[in-house]
């Protein structure tokens, strides 16, 4: 049956190439597309991927199935895609870690900037600076003063090296020019538990993980890292309002394909991503997570390429200054 399919496919291809190049574009995709998520099933990135994949499936007329290839901060999954066949049937959904692992890992089996084609940006999840609920300061300025005055005892939790909370925590400490006591955890769950229990003081994490806790009053929010206030957290000022002018961090997600994937397939994938991001269901789910789909002009190959390049340049000095690598 497989051989029959291949023969049919080959015949179709041969026939199509006789007619016109545009006709090939219409034949893609002709089988299931695998979207690799380089993190475990059930996490925030996996959720984003599954929502987008489902909507893209509708548009492409072929199933886009999510395969979780977790491990080593997302680099195993990225490596898998980098070495996959460049036929448009294997794609990658990765977040900001794509840019930071270029510096965090000194021995990557792929060259981050030259191993991929770019489909487009998916979403940019804002971060929040949160603390245990009984911390005294009332605003971000107060928090910074408090942290500076007690820098030997104030603890900053993160979910492990390379995690969003680790990156944001590093950036926060470099922004206030004060090193605090870093307490790493294995994953967001245990870190959040200890924040709720008041065992640690500060954490900076994605809205995906913090919004409901902030709304429930179990933790205290001092700032969001987006340029504007968020609809779901109207009372929380932006970092700029609180006095940290350049403190903007977001966990952006992008879709990639292996280098050399045919241009027509790339164009089709980008178009499909754009359709998916306009899907009301996707927008509604994203909103519940405290984020929104990227606008159409960001869901493009060029925008993602530019984002990746600028983010690699931005994080390199921050990571090198911290002197912590993952290998």
């Amino acid at each position: 049956m497989k051989i029959l399919n291949a023969i049919l496919g080959a015949t179709a291809l041969a026939a199509a190439s006789l007619v016109s190049v545009a006709a090939i574009a219409q034949t893609y995709p002709e089988r299931t597309i695998t979207m690799i998520v380089p993190f475990a099933a059930g996490g925030p990135t996996d959720t984003v991927a599954r929502l987008v994949a489902e909507s893209m499936s509708n548009d492409l007329g072929q199933q886009v199935i999510v395969e979780n290839v977790g491990g080593a901060g997302g680099t195993l999954g990225a490596a898998r895609v980098a070495s996959a066949d460049a036929d448009g049937y294997t794609i990658l959904l990765h977040h900001i870690g794509m840019a930071t692992s270029a510096t965090l890992y000194r021995k990557l089996p792929y060259d981050t900037l030259n191993a991929f084609e770019y489909v487009g940006l998916v979403t940019d999840v804002p971060m929040t600076i949160v603390t245990r609920k009984d911390l005294e300061p009332t605003d971000l300025k107060g928090l910074i003063e408090y942290a500076k005055a007690n820098k030997d005892t104030v603890t900053v939790a993160n979910a492990g090296i390379g995690a969003a909370s680790h990156l944001c925590g590093m950036l926060f400490m470099s922004a206030i020019e004060t090193p605090l006591v870093t307490v790493p955890y294995k994953g967001t769950g245990p870190a959040m538990t200890d924040l709720l229990g008041g065992q640690v003081d500060i954490m900076c994490d994605q809205t995906t993980n913090t919004t409901k806790q902030i709304q429930g009053g179990t933790i205290k929010a001092y700032a969001v890292t987006s340029p504007e206030r968020l609809d779901v957290l109207k009372d929380v000022p932006t970092a700029a309002e609180g006095g940290l002018a350049d403190f903007q961090v977001g966990i952006w997600h992008g879709v990639y394909a292996p280098k050399g994937t045919p241009a027509d397939a790339m164009a089709r994938l980008t178009k499909s991503l754009q359709v998916a991001l306009k899907d009301e269901n996707v927008a509604a789910r994203f909103a519940e997570l405290g984020t929104e789909p990227s606008p159409e002009n960001d869901a493009t190959s060029d925008a993602l390429k530019a984002k990746l390049e600028s983010e690699i340049a931005r994080w390199k000095p921050v990571i090198e200054a911290a002197g912590q690598y993952a290998d």
Partner: peptide, 14 residues
């Protein structure tokens, strides 16, 4: 269960 395994891999294609 729709596990994302390829039933026949690239080594068997021509």
């Amino acid at each position: 269960l729709g596990l994302p395994f390829r039933r026949f891999g690239p080594w068997l294609e021509f």
